[in-house]
Design a protein around this nucleic acid. Structure first.
Lengths: 216, 216
DNA sequence: TTCGGTTGTGAACGATGTTCATAACGCGGG
DNA sequence: CCCGCGTTATGAACATCGTTCACAACCGAA
C-alpha cells in the first residue's frame, strides 16, 4: 500500500493530491454554505474543483471523508469565533462566561446556519468513528466550558466536571438547534437569545445552590 | 381532481387504500426499528407489505409522507408512555415532575432508539411544513411541561411559559440526544440519567430563585 | 356477457455514489 | 532528443435509489 519510508514518491504527486484536496474542500464548503449538505453532489464538486469525477476518490476515500474534512474546518471556525480563552473567574463571572459561550454558539449557528447544520445532519456510517482531529477539537471546545464551571463549583471532582461541561453544552445545543428547527416553529433569534440567557443563568445558580446541599 | 361531494367512490376502494396504508406504515416501522431510517427502501417496503412497487404511491404521495406517518405514530407512542397527565403540584413537586418527564424522555429514546432517532434524522423537504397532527402532538407534549412550570412560576405570563416549556424540552432533548450520539462518546444511560436529574433540578431551582429578582 | 372506467403492476427513467478499463502523462536512461 | 514504462487522471459504465407511466387486469352495471 503506502511505501514503508516515503519510497519513490518525491512528494510531487502528493503535493498535487493535497492541492486537489483543498480545492475539493473549498468547493464543498461553498456548496454546503449555499444550498446545504443535502445538495452536495459528487459531479458538482468535480466541476467546481475543475477535476474529473473519479479524481475525487484519489483525494478522499469517499464523500463522507470529504464532508468530515469540511466539518472539521467548521469546528475550527467556531473555535476561532470564540476568541482567546479567558481565565480566572469569580462565581458571578463564571455564570456570565457560560452565558457568553452559549450566545457565541447561537450566533455561530445562526451566522453559518447551513455549515453548522451539516455538523449534525451528517451521519457517519455504522461502525465508523470520527477522525482524531474531530474529537480533539471537541475536547478543546468542552474545555472552554470546564473553566468557568470550575470557578462555579470548585468542589466538583474532575470527572464530574467534564461530564457536566458536556451536558451544559448539550443543553445549550438543544435550545439552539430546536430553536432554529423548521420541524417546530422557527423562533426569532432574539427569543432564543433570551431563552438561552434565562436557562443558562438558571442552571448556573441552580448548580451553585446545589453545592453540597444535595449530597446524601 | 377529487370529486366535489364523495361522488362514485363507495369507500370500497378507499378502504383498500387505507388497509395498504396501515400495512406500509407497519412495514416501515419494522424496518426502521430493525435497521434505522437510513435503511428504508421502497422496494423492501413493497415486498414486506405484499404490494407492487408503484402501489406505494397510490397510498402516499412519496416516502417522506410515509415516514411522517411513522413518526406521528412514534410521537403517539411516547405520549402513551408518559401516562395520564398529572395535575396540581406544589413548587417542590413541580421540579420532581419536570425530572420525571425528562427521565421518561430518556427512557423512551433509549428503548426505541432507532424510531426516536428517525424523528429528528428525517429532514422535511425545503418548503414543506409538517402535517397538522404533527404540530398538534407537539403542542400536547409541550403542555405536559407547562403544567409543572406554572406551579413553579405562577407569575410568568402565558407566552413566556410556553416558550420556557419549549426551551426546557429542547435542553432535555439536547442532553439525551448528544448523550447517545456516536459522534461524541456514547455515555452509559445511568450517567445521562444523573446528568438529566442534576441539570433539570438546577434549572428548576434557578428558575424559582429568578422569581422577579431579575426584572429590570 | 360485454363494455367503460378505475386500479394495480413492474419495467423504465433519471439521478446518484463509486469503480475500473483505458488513455494520458511524466520521468529516467539510451 | 526520444523512447519505454510505471503512475495517474479520466469519464463511461455500474449498481442502487425514488419515482413515473404505459399497459393490463379487474369490477360493477347494463
Amino acid at each position: 500500500m503506502t511505501g514503508p519510508a516515503d519510497g519513490g514518491k518525491p512528494t510531487k504527486a502528493e503535493a498535487r493530491r493535497e492541492a486537489l484536496r483543498t480545492a475539493l474542500v473549498a468547493a464543498a464548503e461553498r456548496r454546503i454554505a449555499a444550498d446545504g449538505l443535502g445538495a452536495l453532489r459528487a459531479r458538482d464538486l468535480a466541476a467546481d474543483a475543475g477535476c474529473a469525477l473519479g479524481a475525487i476518490y484519489t483525494a478522499f476515500p469517499d464523500l463522507d471523508a470529504l464532508i468530515l474534512a469540511v466539518n472539521l474546518r467548521t469546528l475550527g471556525l467556531f473555535e476561532a469565533a470564540l476568541g482567546p480563552e479567558a481565565d480566572g473567574f469569580d462565581a458571578a463571572g463564571a455564570a456570565d462566561e457560560l452565558v457568553r459561550l452559549g450566545q457565541a454558539y447561537l450566533a455561530f449557528a445562526q451566522g453559518h446556519a447551513r455549515r453548522w447544520r451539516a455538523l449534525f445532519q451528517h451521519q457517519l456510517a455504522d461502525g465508523r468513528r470520527p477522525p482524531d482531529g474531530y474529537v480533539a477539537e471537541q475536547a478543546r471546545l468542552f474545555r472552554r466550558i470546564e473553566a468557568p464551571l470550575q470557578a462555579l463549583r470548585p468542589d466538583l471532582p474532575a470527572l464530574e466536571r467534564v461530564l457536566l461541561a458536556r451536558s451544559l453544552f448539550s443543553a445549550t445545543h438543544g435550545i439552539v438547534m430546536l430553536g432554529l428547527d423548521a420541524r417546530l416553529m422557527v423562533l426569532p433569534v432574539a427569543v432564543v437569545r433570551d431563552q438561552l440567557d434565562l436557562l443558562i443563568r438558571a442552571m448556573a445558580t441552580g448548580l451553585a445552590n446545589a453545592d453540597g446541599a444535595g449530597a446524601a
